[in-house]
Nucleic acid binder design. Structure first.
Lengths: 264, 264
DNA sequence: CTAGAACCGTGTACCACGCACACAGATATA
DNA sequence: TATATCTGTGTGCGTGGTACACGGTTCTAG
């Protein structure tokens, strides 16, 4: 068997990528560049200028290397983004296992942690999830959340689905908030101003007979609220409601199942 | 007041875009191309080849025009995508208002409708939502869902948040399913095969001491299931669980509020 | 009726990006 | 020491979005 570099028969090469599972080269010059350095500067760039600031040329320039040198350590830009995604949750403060049995508080704490790192790396929510995490840091993150959810009484597969639901919800909410804030800033207004303008435009354009419910909602003055919040970024205004409803749902679900029998 | 074409002072130019609010030109040759034709062929292209098949050059070629001619009718590709997003939900079969008071059934029907059009236009879930819909079709869609949610007893703003939560959840689930199915197909396997391979790779790589919960989950043989479903695409396998939990949560929430007082 | 304003679609070009490929120098194995 | 193997470089291709100036067309004002 001559060691031919097979491109990983398909067996989840993603895992191989994220865990850095390559046999180290035996010959040739010692590499000055490293995959880690590339990912780090890419992340620094994204933190500073957003995802659209991350191009292969830009990352290379930042490092003082040629564009093509990156491809020695990373197969494609897609791979780089995957590595960035995993590394983004590296600094996540993983909650300790709880001693009281309060799984709900545990999940809430997990959500707050997630929000914290996503606020530290806003670009991360713009890289769409494509399944459960596979990298070392992503799995650590998953482990922490899964622990609490399993404690709630969910079955394993249900816990995973719920975790994905929570993760997607957090990410969507943060992404939308980011987007809206950014486009508002482009027009030189605050988020609240922009929202109010948007609401007025919609209101002018819709026919109350065709859109009775929406009209009524506008009548009630949603979107007109003053920023009653104390802090600017707040802990998690619009994120709290959906998360709480999901947790309500889980709570009701496990309670009902415990009460009733477990028929097929 | 000379009619200077102001670029819409910022007042939600998105609405103006989506509703086609431009005063018709009074001079010049009759346009042969139309915004509608552009959007239609772009959608046809996306249906056939996915979003990455949609480039300005490609759309123009399909129509038999020059690339730049499109920019007479559409300000940018971003705008084209926004128009496509709105038009995608055009064919949505909007459920009739219910006569029984079963709001939960109403919301479920709304979700099924959404899934139907998203399956008809898989690319649509890859254009990220950036807030509540603003176009005529999107608002029609919103109206239908909002009607049922308001009937449940939610406040107006809560209903909107819930609707966004549901929409995001449906879209995320469908997008992830699409993505996973596509990457599996690229490696020449079915979705189930690919998932199993992935699970095996992860399992090989993680330390049970560091990832006790995940290890246990793998031990239980999640990801190993045979496709016990009857139909191939099924109505909504992985989508049903999260949606039901959310609805459980709403139900519990409105019930609890009705029971307790409404203290601040 | 005619001049010019307003508008349509075209042609040309620019720039950014991802990446293929061949190469020169470095290095460890045989 | 010869040689296979590896590292970073340079060059260049193809594709994508879009700015800009232009010739031709149509409506309106004088």
């Amino acid at each position: 068997m001559t060691s031919e570099r097979q491109p990983t028969p398909g067996f989840a090469r993603e895992i191989e990528l994220l865990w850095g599972l390559k046999e180290a080269p035996r010959r040739g010059p010692r590499p000055k560049l490293s995959r880690e350095a590339i990912v780090d500067t890419a992340i620094a760039l994204a933190d500073a200028e957003g995802l659209e600031g991350v191009s292969m040329q830009r990352v290379a320039k930042e490092l003082g290397y040629t564009t093509m040198s990156l491809y020695r350590h990373v197969d494609s830009k897609e791979d780089l983004l995957a590595l960035m995604s995993d590394a983004a949750v590296k600094g996540m403060p993983v909650p300790e296992p709880r001693t009281d049995g309060d799984w709900r508080a545990g999940v809430e704490e997990w959500c707050r942690s997630a929000i914290t790192i996503y606020r530290a790396h806003p670009w991360a929510v713009h890289i769409p999830l494509s399944g459960p995490p596979g990298g070392p840091y992503g799995l650590r993150w998953m482990e922490a959340g899964l622990r609490e959810l399993v404690a709630s009484g969910l079955r394993a597969d249900e816990a995973i689905q719920t975790l994905m639901l929570l993760a997607c919800t957090l990410r969507d909410a943060l992404r939308i908030e980011n987007d809206m804030r950014r486009t508002a800033a482009e027009r030189g207004m605050s988020l609240e101003e922009s929202t109010r303008m948007w609401a007025q435009s919609v209101r002018r354009v819709i026919d109350p007979r065709e859109f009775p419910t929406i009209s009524r909602v506008f009548e009630e003055g949603v979107f007109e609220e003053e920023p009653t919040e104390t802090a600017d970024p707040g802990p998690a205004e619009d994120i709290d409601f959906p998360v709480q409803r999901i947790l309500d749902g889980i709570e009701a679900y496990v309670r009902d199942r415990k009460a009733g029998g477990d028929a097929p």
